[in-house]
Nucleic acid binder design. Structure first.
Lengths: 334, 334
DNA sequence: ATGACTTACTAAACCGGTTTAGTGCAAGGA
DNA sequence: TCCTTGCACTAAACCGGTTTAGTAAGTCAT
């Protein structure tokens, strides 16, 4: 089946391509009423759908943005994407979604392809391996917004949780209940991922401000599959903390598995608090207290910021990062 | 900053656009060695990136597919998307991700826009409100694959769980432990969504084959926020089932909330089994038995099927739906 | 020396829109 | 009557690639 083009519509309506184009774009100022009707009829009859690719080529804009997340399987990423998508839909934009899997090469390859596909902008959860490339894109005035992670130079708007506050709240909650020996569980910090680094830093600061000492042995920051072993090791050989702060959902899962395996009771034997919520945490025998991120707000603002940058092209030298306050959900695990 | 075009490269290298195009597309058969080097150098020096929009326009293919899910916030959708994305990446395709929110109008509007953007194909979790439109697309030989849900006529390849088997397994597991009074919890069936309908049907069949009678009062199929009330109502006023089968994750969450509120013990007071897994279910005090879907396999096969259809354009009149066996994860909640 | 083939490359059409610069015509004013 | 102005519409260039048809120069056989 041959695709219907603007020319087909024009011929059928007995007008020129230009006139059809005017019609499609609602420029009716200088269009006769009968012409308008004829074009309208021809479009309907032929089932004409304008080719956006051709339009994009001429107009040098595609109404498309790319989102490169670390991994869409994280609820955090999913919620951000959903919020971005909603905001984009309101503005007639579409979303390419890509998973960089924390691999700078994969990230770079995606950026390359998305740029080649002429996306109007990008939302990136940046790995730290392409900072030079980001700078190039900045020089080319390519609109980008960073989410969840910072790179060393804030050359694009960056939106993320106030991680240190989140840790402070976590420690506060535990300390309030008299917990003095507070451990931390995190996924690996080998790649210097902003939230993990900041959460650990915030945790240490908070301990200090509560007059508690930092016990490096109680800080577990490993690849996911190592966490259980490391926890068991602490439990079996060292002095035991009275509570753990899990800095994200994956760390929490491993922590809960460990707690289950050792038949510990929450909060009697061990206190637990974590960053990131899940509906199942509410239904646990002891519901787990968590610190939520305002994911939808972050995602929506990221999209708003990007769309604004796309139209204004008003780039600043550097940007102050935008921090979001964490949200405490008090349950019974502390 | 002006975008570098193929013409710029051609001028710099002292050749014609055509030659640069040959170079870009690795057609070296009739290219002199020195010419090749000059073009290569010019491209590198100028940092030239070919414009895929222009290419797409001429070649009538974009290397892009659209995925329209019900709601990306469901873990099921996310996993399918992830699998599709992986398969697409291997084949140089990119993914538009859209949320139809079970609204046929929204779905239709997305299909329209994606078709206008010249996607090469679509993966859709179909609502049942655009069957006429699907048929039109079929007539136009537009490649589509359906996932998770069927429409009344199987005009495109359709991949989904063997829902009746899943229900059979669930009932079997409960019956094996002597449960005779088995209720069901589902999200609303007002929109005739395939999996929900089939799971309920399978549940009824399975009860029958175990010689158990179907108690309509024990079947809760409501909007999410109504589920709790309905369950409470059964508990307070009617005869009580000994176990519940939750047909998806949302239903399970509401069921667990209800169980918690009534301080029931799993499995002593009430048996539980559900479709769809979550890492947190493993860490519950009583780990919940579930029936998993092979989401990654479904997603990957969906992408494979679609990509094959895109290149072959070999449409059949109708398709047999492809069913995936459910995977039982036995834990302790039965 | 001539014609037939290769080899290496290019001109120009083309994809399907948008946009600019005009054109033809009728009405209105001098 | 002539000139201007406004209206309704169109021709053609353009976006940045791909692709087809063709050309020029060199090689080889005759």
């Amino acid at each position: 089946m041959k695709k219907i083009t603007m020319q087909d519509v024009a011929s059928k309506a007995g007008v020129s391509k230009s006139t059809v184009s005017q019609y499609i774009n609602n420029r009716f100022e200088f269009m006769g009423a009968s012409t308008k009707l004829r074009v309208e009829a021809a479009i309907k009859e032929l089932g004409y759908i304008p080719n956006q690719v051709a339009k994009s080529l001429k107009q040098k804009k595609t109404g498309t943005i790319g989102v490169i997340v670390a991994n869409i399987l994280h609820a955090f990423s999913t919620e951000i994407i959903r919020a971005i998508e909603d905001e984009c839909e309101r503005n007639g934009f579409h979303l390419f979604v890509c998973n960089a899997d924390d691999q700078p090469e994969k990230e770079r390859s995606y950026i390359d392809m998305l740029v080649a596909k002429q996306v109007d902008g990008l939302v990136i959860f940046p790995t730290n391996g392409n900072n030079d490339y980001y700078k190039q894109l900045k020089n080319a005035e390519f609109p980008i917004v960073f989410v969840d992670r910072m790179i060393n130079e804030p050359i694009f708007p960056t939106l993320l949780l106030d991680n240190e506050s989140a840790s402070r709240i976590a420690v506060e909650q535990l300390a309030k209940k008299g917990r003095k020996k507070i451990g931390l569980v995190s996924t690996s910090i080998a790649q210097n991922v902003t939230p993990r680094i900041e959460r650990i830093r915030g945790y240490k600061k908070a301990l200090a401000s509560h007059g508690l000492s930092v016990e490096e042995d109680w800080i577990v920051a490993e690849e996911r599959q190592e966490i259980g072993k490391k926890l068991q090791n602490i439990w079996d050989t060292g002095s035991r903390p009275e509570a753990f702060f899990a800095t994200n959902d994956l760390a929490l899962i491993e922590l809960l598995k460990f707690i289950k395996k050792n038949k510990l009771a929450i909060p009697e034997d061990i206190g637990v608090i974590a960053i990131d919520d899940s509906p199942f945490l509410e239904t646990a025998t002891t519901p787990i207290s968590v610190i939520k991120q305002p994911t939808f707000e972050i995602g929506q603002n990221a999209a708003e910021t990007l769309l604004k940058l796309i139209v204004s092209k008003d780039f600043k030298e550097v940007y102050e990062e935008r921090r979001y306050p964490p949200i405490l959900v008090e349950r019974e695990s502390i």
